[in-house]
Design a protein around this nucleic acid. Structure first.
Lengths: 157, 157
DNA sequence: TATTGTTATACTCTATAACTATA
DNA sequence: TATAGTTATAGAGTATAACAATA
């Protein structure tokens, strides 16, 4: 059941003011709040590694698909290719990934993790899993997490 | 069940490349994508009304709680009070809301909808509901929506 | 001393157009 | 002509510090 208090502590109800039903039931509002909470925790847990959410997502995609085209990685992450350049530059400058020019089509770059990048990501994973587990715990288990992922996917597909 | 394709059309699987399991199961990634999709649709449906998500949320909170303190509205919406000033300025300049100084504590402003603001919001609501219904439909009904809201709330509480 | 609203400012993220080199 | 990557730039959104008025 959904109640109509916007405040976690029920402030609105205790004060006897009108409800916030429109906002409390708003998917846009709730998704935004959740995104903020997850981003905040990511930065708390992994921020001192000098890595942002976007950096992590790039590393993990390349780890799973070594040699993927730069523009395909950008598209997979819903990042515009113009904005993706700086991200790739940063990761390359840190020695975590490298661009390799295609011999067949000299316009394209394939992205690969370096050894340092592979080691760095491996070292990151336990902290990232801890970060994810925090929210799986709040949700009430990985079955709930799977349900949530499925619902979120249906929203953005 | 969750599959591991990052692409809606199953591209990764068809190409036989490695999976994206880390990312595909990442709450941070999926929530971000959903937020982007909802924001995009909000702008498509309501952008020509000269109103942003934040503006709409302010109007609907004030509509439900006339005379709420400016800083309390900001806190309810997780907007910092410094950044909230420009939003309130904008809505006031459009004649949709007004600040009324408290007689008891002359530091605080109470926020009220004007008549024009009430009418504007009333006119907005059908379009906003259409926007929300689009995603309720994708989710498979309002029971699913309630489940999702509840899960998202557990994440950000 | 503390709080409300405010200003100023900087930083990140995102969006768009145009360029280059290749195809 | 079209595409991959790039540059430049502008606009949002967000974060922080400091100030004036008031408590």
């Amino acid at each position: 059941m959904i109640d109509h208090n916007i405040f976690a502590d029920g402030t609105a109800a205790r004060q006897g003011v009108a409800d916030y039903s429109v906002l409390a039931l708003s998917l846009g509002f709730r998704v935004r709040r959740a995104q903020l909470a997850i981003l905040q925790d990511f930065q708390d847990v992994l921020g001192d590694q000098g890595i942002r959410q976007a950096d992590f997502s790039v590393l993990s995609v390349i780890a799973g698909n070594s040699g993927m085209k730069q523009s395909d990685v950008a598209e997979a992450l819903a990042i515009q290719r113009a904005n993706f350049v700086a991200i790739v530059d940063g990761l390359e400058k840190k020695g975590l990934i490298e661009r390799r020019r295609s011999e067949v089509d000299r316009r394209v770059y394939f992205l690969h993790l370096t050894e340092a990048g592979t080691a760095f990501l491996a070292q990151l994973m336990p902290k990232w899993r801890e970060h994810e587990e925090k929210f799986i715990g709040r949700l009430g288990g990985s079955d709930k997490r799977d349900q949530l992922i499925e619902m979120l996917r249906s929203i953005s597909d």
